[in-house]
Simulated assay, not measured.
Amino acid sequence: MKVSVDADKCVAAGQCVLLAPEVFDQREEDGVVFLLDEAPGPDLHDGVRESAMVCPAAAIHLAES
């Protein structure tokens, strides 16, 4: 799996950080998402998929391999 985020779309809801804190974090100044791991291991895939599904701005993109 390869993960990418569109920071311009992010509305700083923080759901991704709650669901997959090993993969996503938020900038302190404005809460916009940034990636900690663009190629997470299989043990994190479920949380990353759920993060993408619940993102209110559809700012998380996944490429399954």
Rank of each mutant, 00 (worst) to 15 (best):
A52E: 00
R49T: 10
V48Y: 05
K9L: 09
V33G: 00
A52H: 03
G47T: 01
F34M: 03
H45M: 13
F24M: 07
D6L: 03
V5P: 10
M53Y: 07
D37A: 11
H45K: 14
K9G: 05
D43F: 08
A39C: 13
L35F: 02
P56L: 01
A52V: 07
D43N: 11
M53P: 06
S4H: 10
S65F: 14
M1I: 13
P42E: 15
G14W: 04
C55K: 02
A12K: 06
V3Q: 04
A39G: 11
E38F: 08
A20R: 12
R27N: 01
G47A: 00
A59N: 02
D37P: 06
P42C: 14
S65K: 13
V32Y: 13
A57P: 01
D37I: 14
K2I: 04
P42T: 13
D25V: 08
E50I: 12
E64R: 15
D43G: 12
V32Q: 14
A57G: 01
G41T: 14
C55M: 03
C10I: 12
E28H: 07
S4F: 10
D25K: 03
A39M: 12
V48P: 00
A13K: 14
A39Q: 11
A13E: 10
G31P: 01
V3H: 00
E22C: 02
A12M: 06
V54Q: 08
A59Y: 04
V11N: 01
F34G: 05
P42Q: 15
V11F: 03
A12V: 01
S4Q: 13
A20G: 01
D30K: 10
E50N: 08
A12Y: 04
D30P: 06
L18E: 12
V48C: 01
G14P: 08
D37G: 08
V48Q: 05
E50V: 09
P42W: 15
V11D: 06
P40T: 04
L35R: 05
A39S: 14
P21H: 07
G31V: 03
E28I: 01
Q26L: 09
C16H: 06
E28Q: 12
V11S: 03
C10V: 11
A57K: 10
L35Q: 02
A20T: 05
A13W: 02
G41V: 12
C10Y: 13
F34Q: 14
D30Q: 09
E29G: 11
V5F: 11
E22H: 03
A63V: 08
L19E: 02
V23T: 01
G47N: 05
L35H: 07
C10T: 10
E28R: 10
V5R: 07
E29V: 10
V32T: 15
L19I: 08
Q15D: 13
S65G: 15
M1Q: 15
Q26F: 02
E22V: 00
V33R: 04
M1F: 14
A59I: 02
V5K: 07
F34V: 00
